[in-house]
């Protein structure tokens, strides 16, 4: 399972999303590989990610992407992340 965590530069918000999503997926015992990246890279047609995580403000910029986009309101809220990831993965 391949996921992307996306933000404007690929090194801040996306890294926080990646860290906390990894914690949640480990608890859910789901094996996944998450990369943090920027919007332009995520939109590349070569991307094989099935799920893209971002904050809601970036959702519009990811329109047209093949992957399912999950907007996370609070990147520090592990229960929100758990709920949203469970809904798409289980």
């Amino acid at each position: 399972m391949k996921l992307l965590a996306v933000c404007g530069m690929g090194i801040g918000t996306s890294v926080l999303l990646k860290m906390n999503a990894e914690r949640v997926l480990e608890q859910l015992e789901i094996e996944a590989d998450i990369d943090a990246t920027d919007v332009a890279t995520a939109l590349s047609p070569d991307s094989t990610a099935q799920i893209v995580l971002c904050t809601p403000e970036l959702k519009d910029q990811l329109k047209g992407i093949r992957a399912e986009v999950i907007a996370v309101d609070n990147v520090f809220d592990l229960s929100e992340l758990t709920e949203k990831l469970e809904k798409s993965l289980l």
Partner: peptide, 9 residues
């Protein structure tokens, strides 16, 4: 790039 760095309430 907009306020995407508002990461939590």
């Amino acid at each position: 790039k907009g306020p995407y760095m508002v990461v939590a309430p």
